[in-house]
Design a protein around this nucleic acid. Sequence first.
DNA 1: CCTGAAACGGACTGATGAGTCCGCTTACGT
DNA 2: ACGTAAGCGGACTCATCAGTCCGTTTCAGG
Lengths: 173, 173
Amino acid sequence: MTELRADARRNLERVLDAAADVFAASGPDASIDEIARHAGVGHGTVFRRFPTKDDLMYAVVERRVAQMRAVAREALAADDPGEAFFDFVHRVAELNMRTPGLHRCIVHCGDKPGAADLERLVGKIVSRAQRAGAVRRDVKPADVRALVRSALTSAPPGQWRRYLEVVLDGLRA
Amino acid sequence: MTELRADARRNLERVLDAAADVFAASGPDASIDEIARHAGVGHGTVFRRFPTKDDLMYAVVERRVAQMRAVAREALAADDPGEAFFDFVHRVAELNMRTPGLHRCIVHCGDKPGAADLERLVGKIVSRAQRAGAVRRDVKPADVRALVRSALTSAPPGQWRRYLEVVLDGLRA
DNA sequence: CCTGAAACGGACTGATGAGTCCGCTTACGT
DNA sequence: ACGTAAGCGGACTCATCAGTCCGTTTCAGG
């Protein structure tokens, strides 16, 4: 069952690549038809591998979530908890704002794929920074995520760094 | 032409009231059919008065924008510029968060209706507060609006006051 | 080769929602 | 009261998009 025919595997890759491109460009509203066209296959082919549009989106989003987990693990290994936290936020923001459409897909997915793990890591980063007195104590990790995310998505193109600084200033103890 | 027949005027009011209710409950995605049903008229009747859905939404949004203008004028009349600014933001937030759906409509409208005027008033409030040293100088009125708005819309139900405080802290000089 | 299973792709369905049209109804001036 | 224009409402069109189905094509093992 894991053994796909050669053409099938090729098409599967094409679909995933196309989906990454199109979702990155148009966000979660991208249509399956457009992705299929971009991949050079019929949309029936897409649906055979991914029964629903969300399934396809999760597959694309998963890669990004994995990257973020890696960044989070690095932050936990760093020495200064406060610096680690702010650096982590900056790096994740940088990662996501390179493809704002994909970022909106992550939001749309409600963090379904490998989110629990990432959530746990972020929780550690935040509470460590709070214990070190670098971050105000009346916020939870979910609050940090929501606030940062909203600053990023509401900023006009090219302005998100400034907006992020404002929110991060507000988060300092 | 401005003289509507009595039944027409009655229906127009019903439509506007229904639209206010439904948009407040469901945001900009509310369908014309639902509004018409809620008003007890056919949807043809709605379209006769408001050629497009956006026209109807603007009409509803206009009322709220007028309220905000009034609050802004009060703020400009206050003595302490810094206090006036933060108080203004709080009051506008309070106003909008009582009907989050309508708030989303305002966002959707991109501030089309009477926004220029409101924009101008807010500009004065902000720069006055900046001159008084209460607000950081590297933000423009549009930034304030975007940041506050994003904090409000991204907060979980009941949490928006906390989120607003974080952003306002970030905006202080 | 040659055959059968796997894969393909596009026609089709079904749902939704904006906006149009027109035959019927109703207000209101005379 | 009555004629008519304003008003009504819902059936209809049109577009979009997710998801299904099935006749045809293509791969791969013997």
